[in-house]
């Protein structure tokens, strides 16, 4: 098992290298000259030239890459040209916000998705199954921003139960923190819950039709043990992988949702950075996101190995 995990870890290196090259080169394909943007109104060629020199923009691209990756490896993601703040500081500020949102959304998605998926597999072809599938499909296909706006209208504007926007850190005030994040987390979670529900349902149906479930019933086990122990354990492995991937997607910035609820997270950070051609921030954020995504993928693989005795030994 350790060998298998080691192998997956070794695969990380070329993947991350490739991702870094990609991020770096895409950046240079974007139209617009950052030196010009930074110079602002002042179009003095001397100033522009000085800016180029200061940020190494006058060097050949491979050299620029080498300079950049060298610093990244040392933990220095560069400095925001606009905010004059180290990118790592921005990341440290915004990432926890997005992580909180993603964890809450994932919890909502897992609880809703797995529970409804299992029940609809157990009661397949019943009215319940039908309702769950329709609602699930609606959850998948409803645009996040629309659901978000509707929730703000209902819970913030009409009922006044929740704040419409903003964010409070859970370390400051847990209750208010939950109040500000529950709506965006719900919006993000329901979309994923639909996907998880459908995967859980089909995996459970397969498991419930399997020979080992028949054996479990032949042992006289209660239907609850049969479903939640024997079938579930095997049906959940694909759901683990799916959950990890979806979690990665959540972390890469719930761009629209964060905009709507004015949550100062990763999504908002990257949108602002792209519009302002803040190279260093875009590179840093995308790199952190990609790395997180790849690491989560690895964790999903390890989880899969742990859940599967055939791979464990």
């Amino acid at each position: 098992m350790l060998q298998l995990i080691g192998k997956r870890l070794a695969q990380l290196v070329p993947t991350l290298f490739f991702v870094s090259v990609l991020i770096f080169s895409l950046q240079h394909l974007m139209p617009g000259d950052p030196a010009l943007v930074m110079a602002g109104e002042e179009r003095d060629p001397v100033v522009i030239e000085q800016i180029r020199k200061q940020y190494g923009l006058d060097q050949p691209i491979p050299v620029q890459y080498a300079m950049w990756i060298g610093k990244v490896l040392a933990g220095d993601l560069g400095e925001s040209m606009r905010l004059k703040v180290p990118v790592s500081e921005l990341v440290a500020q915004k990432l926890p916000v997005t992580i909180q949102l993603a964890v809450m959304a994932m919890l909502i998605a897992l609880v809703l998705g797995v529970a409804t998926g299992v029940l609809s597999a157990v009661k397949r072809n019943s009215a319940w199954d039908w309702v769950v599938n329709v609602v699930g499909l609606a959850g998948i296909s409803t645009p996040n921003f629309w659901l978000g706006i509707m929730m703000i209208l209902l819970f913030a504007v009409h009922l006044g139960w929740l704040p419409a926007s903003g964010y409070v850190s859970p370390f400051e005030d847990l209750q208010r923190s939950l109040a500000t994040t529950i709506m965006p987390a719900f919006v993000l979670g329901t979309a994923i819950a639909g996907v998880i529900m459908r995967h859980t349902r089909s995996a459970m149906i397969q498991a419930l039709d399997s020979d080992y479930v028949r054996t479990a019933r032949a042992k006289g086990l209660s239907e609850r043990t049969v479903v939640w122990k024997h079938a579930m354990r095997n049906a959940l492995t694909p759901v683990i992988t799916l959950g990890a991937l979806e979690f990665g997607t959540l972390l890469s910035g719930a761009v629209l949702t964060e905009q709507i609820f004015s949550i100062p997270g990763f999504g908002k950070l990257i949108v602002d950075a792209v519009f302002n051609r803040d190279y260093a921030v875009v590179q840093g954020v995308v790199l952190v996101t990609a790395t997180t995504y790849i690491v989560l993928n690895l964790l999903a693989d390890i989880g899969y190995i742990l859940a599967n005795p055939r791979l464990r030994s």
């Binding site: 080992y212 028949r214 479990a216 032949a218 095997n234 599967n308």
Partner: peptide, 18 residues
């Protein structure tokens, strides 16, 4: 599973792999 027991045709798939 107590007084009434059964074994099946497919030993390869009749045991829970997990």
């Amino acid at each position: 599973g107590d007084r009434l027991a059964m074994i099946f045709q497919e030993p390869m798939t009749s045991l829970n792999p997990s």
